[in-house]
């Protein structure tokens, strides 16, 4: 009984499946290698390569927090996520 989720909590999405990462797109032509995305990513997902361009190193650790996309001064990152709820409904 104790573990039955309260209906309002279900509605608020607390028990809904988390969004999952589909792809992190980095526009190499726009990236200037400032490392802001690398430094502030909570999951150490990103790195800069030898050409000073951001690359996705550990996609499995991405929590889809969007911090990298929102903080990129060059609009060079796009985090594409999948919402399981939406996917189920087509």
């Amino acid at each position: 009984m104790k573990h039955t989720p309260k209906p309002d909590m279900v509605l608020k999405g607390i028990f809904m499946a988390k969004k999952t990462l589909k792809e992190i797109r980095i526009n190499r032509a726009w990236c200037k290698g400032c490392r802001i995305c690398v430094h502030f990513c909570p999951g150490q997902v990103l790195e800069c390569d030898a050409q000073d361009k951001a690359v996705v190193q550990r996609p499995q650790d991405c929590t889809c927090c969007m911090e990298c996309e929102l903080r990129c001064p060059d609009l060079a990152i796009e985090v594409i996520v999948e919402h399981p709820k939406e996917a189920a409904h087509g």
């Binding site: 032509a29 400032c34 490392r35 929102l70 990129c72 001064p73 060059d74 609009l75």
Partner: peptide
């Protein structure tokens, strides 16, 4: 007009983004 002319890591790009 991209990549824009602001320097590497310039905050103005983040303002544009937000």
């Amino acid at each position: 007009f991209f990549p824009h002319l602001w320097c590497q890591g310039c905050g103005h790009g983040i303002v544009l983004n937000s």
